[in-house]
């Protein structure tokens, strides 16, 4: 009999509506799924290490990264470099500066370039794309006109090869770190604009938007409370991916000599550029090669970290995979 009552209780439990569970929003769900993803955890770990280094690097650095303390020990002409030793864990560069300190301090500039340029692209792109998408979806005839004008402009930006565009911006604005940030950021604008616009258009045709309009909700609220928040998923994913490309592109611009005119300031792209001429492809562990390999590895690992997190986010936010 007790077994039966137990079973009955269980039946009642199953039949009763489960009121106790509290709702979990989309972002909560996504976070929960991210926690279980190895890809996301790896990406997040890499990024955390990178950011920590970028913030506290200058205090951790054992030596002054700009001082040519051991200038007389390095003989570039005779290809004599100083490799890793007790005081200089990654050896010296071609001007006798401590490679390890330069790498630590360089992270800060690299992060700064990546974040600022992505922010430029994100803010400007989202503004253009958001206005364009909202205008096309809800603005009637005038809106369609505004969208056409904005999108043709964006298309022109998109048609230019990104590096070429960046070089042009740098050429116009002169050589500085700000130039690099703006140049890399401008390149990202069309990507973000197109993405947000497309995403908003897709959402604008969703049934819940129609339902909100049928309820009598004002257009402004429909756009700001329904369409925009639901369109942000792909943009957030793109932001992490863009951070990766921004770091690489900033490095490329620095490498081309368009970056900070003060070449003594360490930055991974600049370091790579300066070390390139000593590079020995046959022996990557030779100090001559190590000068290039270290910043290159830094760039690759960081970019990979952002890419991993971006991909994991993309998966976590995909509504098709929601359980």
């Amino acid at each position: 009999m007790t077994i039966r009552t137990e079973k009955l209780d269980r039946l009642a439990e199953l039949t009763a509506r489960r009121d106790t569970t509290t709702g979990a929003g989309l972002w909560t769900e996504a976070l929960r799924r991210l926690r279980g993803s190895k890809m996301a955890l790896t990406g997040a770990a890499v990024i955390t290490v990178f950011v920590v280094i970028a913030v506290v690097g200058p205090w951790l650095a054992p030596h002054d990264p700009t001082a040519q303390t051991w200038r007389d020990e390095v003989f570039v002409n005779r290809a004599l470099f100083v490799g890793p030793r007790s005081g200089n864990w990654l050896g010296l560069d071609h001007l006798g500066r401590d490679q390890f300190s330069r790498l630590l301090v360089g992270a800060r500039h690299t992060l700064l370039v990546g974040v600022v340029s992505t922010l430029i692209g994100l803010v400007a792109g989202a503004l253009v794309g958001g206005v364009s998408g909202a205008a096309l979806a809800f603005g009637g005839r005038a809106g369609r006109g505004l969208d056409t004008v904005l999108m043709r402009g964006v298309d022109m930006l998109l048609a230019l090869p990104s590096l070429l565009l960046a070089v042009s911006v740098a050429a116009v604005m002169g050589q500085s770190l700000t130039t690099v940030m703006i140049a890399v950021g401008v390149v990202q604008i069309p990507v973000f604009a197109r993405l947000l616009r497309g995403s908003m258009l897709a959402q604008a045709h969703a049934d819940y938007v129609l339902a909100a309009r049928a309820l009598g909700v004002r257009r402004r609220r429909v756009v700001l409370a329904h369409v925009l928040p639901n369109s942000l998923g792909p943009v957030i994913v793109q932001t992490t991916l863009a951070l990766a490309t921004a770091i690489i592109e900033a490095a490329a611009l620095s490498y081309l000599g368009l970056g900070n005119p003060d070449a003594a300031q360490p930055e991974w792209g600049v370091m790579l550029a300066q070390a390139e001429r000593f590079f020995v492809p046959e022996d990557l562990l030779d100090q001559a090669s190590l000068m290039a390999v270290c910043p290159a590895l830094g760039i690759i690992v960081t970019a990979l970290g952002f890419t991993l997190l971006g991909e994991a986010l993309r998966e976590a936010l995909d509504p098709k995979l929601r359980g």
Partner: peptide
């Protein structure tokens, strides 16, 4: 037919 393992995070 049994679906094993993780399915959509479950």
């Amino acid at each position: 037919v049994t679906f094993t393992g993780r399915d959509g995070g479950r």
